[in-house]
Design a protein around this nucleic acid. Structure first.
Length: 706
RNA sequence: GGCACGGUAGCUCAGUUGGUUAGAGCGCAGGAUUCAUAAUCCUGAGGUCGGGAGUUCGAGCCUCCCCCGUGCUACCA
């Protein structure tokens, strides 16, 4: 497909059981927003929808536990999420929700149509654990019991995390519901299964070659590696029937008789939510939704995080094909995950920052939301996991937005007022290699966005303002002015600089929409309209003047305020507070983990332990063990082999030469086939960090410790 | 455990189908400049591309083995 007539864009539906954090924004929403805003500026016909995913067991169970209705939960988070998106300028055409009637009807239509076609659904009766107190069938994760293999009492219904074995709930000894703590009973239930195996062949063709029904559909080379890899891994493993109904009282009713108490599985209904949202949007805006989902000249693109790949690349396409008549995605540019200060985001541990919290905590930092957009784009986890750090936030913002871009715009404005009273002078247009570079960079930036390389795009945008800075520096109009204030080179230079600002003012809109407006106001340019970027491109290619002679700009003002500002520490203090919060969490974790004092031992018992001073003289990693190091320890009177769990924190090279304390009369024990003849004493803190304990470095070896 | 994707300068990352001395930004060092928010511009130092073996005239890129990180592993969503 070369020139699609229109675009249908979706972003993963957030689950309405919690707020969003930076990782979500960087994953599926910010890239889509930049992409869609660019398409709009290029004058393309595009619809972009999203919405809250409001069904599923997690919401039901939480509601039961908290004694409130599922509706209260979804309303709370739907509104919070919606507000967050607005605060960060995420410009959906519609942010919908799956509890809407139109979506219930649409999902049921999907189920019925597939059922009536008679090929892709089958009913199976199975026995499942049921919590009688909660009146709820239990998903595997909600059942805990004793692992039949390692006797761990906290094994889950699907897996024992201690020994790693895969389990099914009926394998567990003494199973307990994690909801009520009661023993669940086995109960028969029937469910509808989508026969994915029917779709394996065409899916393979479609994913690996990009062909559909014998025709070229898309170029698989434009898909990301990890997306293709993940899909092929699934397809090679063989597809199996997958249940698409659940026993719950919250959700979309299964639209057949004798299906009381059964609802559609959220993963069946959620992606259909994209279609429902489009229907609602079309209805509200006088459009035909089918143009966007069924017309062969529409391109469908799903923006998601990597955890959703198989659902969007295999299961949802299978559902669409089973129903018939719908387009399949031409690309699914899934992003990887964002970490926060070297760790995963964790709401329960308070690690990370919620978007709603960011908005309130940064309210005295004007433009902070846009700054975050920019920084997140700059470090976007496009092809591998990325890491957000406050220090990087400060660096990127101060260096790139303030010093490079903001400063360039400011110097152009100040110089224009100084030499031409803010009026665009008559000038010979600069159409040399600098102009060619400007054109090339503009095109490169747009192409990068269209091929989902948002990091390259931001970098290119910065290169444009760098180009302006270099040009200004080399032209040095202030020098020329000193020699001859009438020299026409001054006008030529400043007009070109203003043209660079003009380009930036339009091209920056997808990344920083508010900043675009600010530049336009300062420069007295008209506000960006759909299609303006295309017009700009045309003008650049035709080498037309971008600014009229006599155009008057407004008084110079700063675009961004620095974080590391000498006079105003407001912004720095906000950042410092964030950093301090994380330090406090680390300290608290360490304190909480302080081990309780063990039971009293008699002096006699204690004195049975023989501890000696020693020195590590050799060390190597134990094969097939993550934690173990094999140490050779010199005790003065003899050397011993000791296997110790140090490898996660120390390399063999680091520990050689280390003086240690060793329990020398501990019964020998085989670890990974190596006999360990003693134990090296270590101190550990709450965070699990270890430290050696020992006598002074030059103390004699083999001495008794008491 | 199996599968997938990653592991490139102090830090964050680019490296298209294997092709000359492996790139950028930040940080660091030196210099220039003053229109500008102690901003800008120029120059420089820095890497046996996770480790090992192989294919090739030639490997960051291809093959095999190993190590590390992340994800998926099908009724959590």
């Amino acid at each position: 497909m070369n020139q699609p007539k229109r675009y249908m864009i979706t972003s993963a539906l957030p689950y309405a059981n919690g707020g969003l954090h930076l990782g979500h924004l960087a994953g599926a929403y910010l890239p889509a927003d930049i992409f869609v805003r660019t398409l709009r500026l290029l004058g393309k016909d595009v619809a972009w929808v999203c919405g809250s995913d409001e069904h599923g067991a997690a919401i039901t169970i939480r509601a039961k536990k908290e004694g409130i209705s599922p509706k209260e939960i979804i309303d709370k988070y739907h509104n919070e999420i919606k507000d967050s998106f607005e605060a960060f300028g995420i410009s959906f055409d519609l942010y919908h929700r799956t509890s809407a009637d139109i979506h219930h009807a649409n999902s049921q239509e999907f189920f019925k149509t597939i059922l009536e076609k008679g090929e892709d659904l089958e009913v199976k009766e199975t026995e499942q654990y049921y919590d009688e107190k909660f009146n709820q069938f239990l998903a595997d994760r909600y059942i805990q019991g004793t692992c039949p293999k390692c006797e761990n009492e906290e094994a889950y219904g699907d897996q024992c995390e201690k020994c790693g074995s895969d389990l099914s709930p009926t394998d567990l000894i003494n199973p307990k519901s994690t909801l009520s703590g009661e023993n669940p009973i086995l109960k028969k239930t029937k469910h509808w299964f989508l026969k994915l195996q029917n779709h394996e062949e065409w899916l393979k063709e479609w994913i690996s070659k990009g062909t559909l029904d014998g025709k070229e559909h898309h170029d698989p080379k434009t898909w990301k590696n990890h997306v293709l890899g993940q899909c092929m891994s699934w397809l090679e493993g063989g597809l199996h029937a997958r249940s698409i109904t659940r026993d719950l009282d919250w959700g979309i009713k299964v639209p057949v008789e004798d299906a009381d108490g059964k609802v559609l599985y959220v993963w069946f209904d959620a992606p259909i939510g994209y279609i429902s949202a489009t229907q609602q949007w079309a209805k509200d805006n006088g459009k035909n939704w089918e143009d966007y989902w069924k017309s062969p000249d529409t391109e469908l693109i799903h923006f998601i995080g990597k955890d959703n790949i198989v659902f969007h690349c295999i299961i949802f396409p299978a559902i669409l094909k089973a129903h018939g008549g719908y387009n399949l995605p031409t690309n699914v540019p899934a992003n990887q995950f964002l970490n926060f200060e070297d760790r995963k985001f964790s709401t329960s541990k308070g690690w990370g920052i919620n978007l709603a919290d960011f908005v309130s905590e940064f309210q005295n930092f004007e433009g902070a939301n846009e700054a975050l957009r920019f920084v997140l784009t700059r470090i976007m986890p496009e092809n591998k996991d990325a890491n957000f750090k406050w220090a990087d936030f400060v660096d990127v913002y101060d260096n790139e937005l303030v010093n490079n871009l903001g400063n360039f715009v400011n110097r152009v404005m100040v110089l224009s007022h100084k030499y031409f009273e803010g009026k665009t002078p008559s000038a010979t247009l600069v159409r040399d290699e600098n102009f060619d570079n400007l054109v090339a960079l503009t095109q490169k930036c747009i192409e990068a966005i269209q091929s989902f390389q948002f990091k390259v795009a931001t970098k290119t945008l910065m290169e444009i303002s760098s180009l302006g800075n270099v040009f200004l520096q080399e032209s040095a109009p202030w020098k020329i002015f000193k020699e001859n204030p009438e020299d026409p080179q001054i006008a030529n230079c400043l007009v070109f600089c203003a043209e660079v600002v003009k380009v930036i003012s339009i091209l920056i809109e997808p990344f920083l929409p508010q900043t675009a407006i600010k530049i336009q106001q300062l420069m007295n340019f008209s506000t960006s309209q759909n299609g303006d970027l295309q017009t700009l491109l045309n003008n650049l290619e035709a080498k037309n003047a971008l600014i009229e002679e006599g155009h008057t700009i407004n008084e110079a003002a700063l675009l961004f305020a620095k974080i590391n500002d000498r006079k105003d520490t407001t912004r720095k203090e906000i950042i410092d507070r964030q950093v301090q919060k994380l330090e406090a969490i680390l300290e608290e974790e360490a304190a909480q983990k302080a081990a309780p004092v063990k039971d009293t031992v008699s002096f006699e018992d204690f004195s049975k332990t023989d501890i000696r001073t020693g020195k590590i003289i050799a060390a190597e990693k134990v094969k097939k063990a993550n934690k173990l190091l094999k140490l050779t320890v010199d005790l003065g009177f003899e050397t011993r082999t000791i296997v110790s769990g140090l490898a996660e924190q120390f390399t063999p090279e680091e520990v050689v030469g280390q003086t240690v304390l060793v329990v020398v009369n501990l019964a020998p024990r085989k670890l990974r086939g190596i006999e360990s003849q003693g134990m090296v004493l270590m101190a550990t803190n709450g965070a699990g960090k270890m430290s050696f304990v020992s006598a002074d470095n030059d103390f004699e070896l083999g001495q008794v410790v008491f």
